[in-house]
């Protein structure tokens, strides 16, 4: 057992999750593959969305994978950083918008 929680090599072992539950893993990977194909959005556009979401959910494996994928598909460094800012703005906004809830509560209990 490693003495840390994340290991870069584990990304390459993602497919191994099927060893413990093959049917669900197969369904997940089939769905995953389908999601990232060209559709109403191109595979390239989906890659940039995935990069932003990877940052929002703070998944180091996903950030590794989609930093490579988005760059390989032709996005520039500036475009990728703007996508990260979008994730940041949404996450920051999600925190701040709860400030309204805080204000509501304070107004409710204050004189």
């Amino acid at each position: 057992m490693a003495d840390h929680y994340y290991n870069a090599e584990d990304l390459g072992k993602f497919g191994n999750i099927g060893e413990y539950q093959k049917e669900m893993a197969d369904k997940f990977f089939s769905y995953y593959g389908e999601v990232f194909k060209d559709g109403a959005l191109t595979a390239k556009e989906k890659s940039l969305i995935a990069l932003a979401v990877a940052h929002a959910v703070q998944c180091p494996y996903c950030i590794d994978a989609y930093s490579s994928d988005a760059y390989e598909k032709g996005f520039s460094e500036a475009q990728m950083m703007e996508a990260v800012h979008v994730a940041s703005a949404i996450k920051g906004g999600a925190v701040l918008v709860h400030g309204v809830q805080m204000m509501n509560k304070v107004k409710e209990i204050s004189m």
Partner: peptide, 13 residues
């Protein structure tokens, strides 16, 4: 590719 990676889809490019 301008880096250490493989080309993406030729058709999409």
């Amino acid at each position: 590719p301008a880096g250490a990676f493989l080309p993406p889809s030729q058709d999409a490019l």
